[in-house]
Simulated scan of single mutants.
Amino acid sequence: MAESTYKVVELIGSSTESWEKAASAAVEKASQHLRELRVAEVSELDMALQDGKVQAYRAKVKVSFKYED
């Protein structure tokens, strides 16, 4: 395997339905702007609350892509 370098960016996706959809939203947005995505890692999950009720599920996602000069 040839040597490669990858860059990692951290994104936060949100969804009113689930953490899974929140993470998917972050990856989908990243794929519109970055090429050659390699790995996505969910690093944190939380919820936005209002009046004691869940308003949104949020997923902090680290996405890696091949770094090119």
Rank of each mutant, 00 (worst) to 15 (best):
W19Q: 07
A25G: 01
K60S: 11
A56I: 04
E28Q: 15
D51G: 09
R35Q: 13
E20P: 02
L49E: 14
G13D: 00
S15R: 03
L34A: 07
T16I: 04
G52F: 00
V27D: 06
Y57V: 08
A2Y: 14
V9W: 03
Y57D: 08
V8D: 08
L34K: 00
K21I: 03
R58N: 02
M47H: 05
S24G: 12
T5L: 11
R58E: 04
M47K: 14
T16D: 15
D51L: 01
Y6M: 08
V8M: 13
V9Q: 01
V63Q: 02
S14R: 13
K60A: 14
L45G: 03
R58I: 07
A22F: 06
Y67N: 11
V63Y: 03
T16H: 07
E44R: 14
K66F: 03
S4K: 13
V8N: 03
R38W: 01
A30H: 02
R35C: 09
Y57N: 00
E36R: 15
A2Q: 11
A26V: 03
S31E: 10
S43E: 12
D46K: 04
E41W: 10
D46W: 06
Q55S: 06
E41F: 09
Y6D: 05
H33K: 10
K66M: 07
M47L: 07
K21M: 15
K21N: 13
V54E: 02
T16S: 14
Q55K: 13
Q32A: 10
G52L: 03
R35W: 06
V39A: 07
R38E: 11
Q32T: 11
K29V: 03
A30M: 02
K66E: 11
V61D: 02
A23N: 05
A56S: 14
H33M: 15
K53P: 13
R35T: 13
A30T: 11
Y57S: 09
E10H: 02
K62T: 06
L49C: 09
V8I: 10
S18G: 02
A2T: 14
V61E: 09
M47D: 12
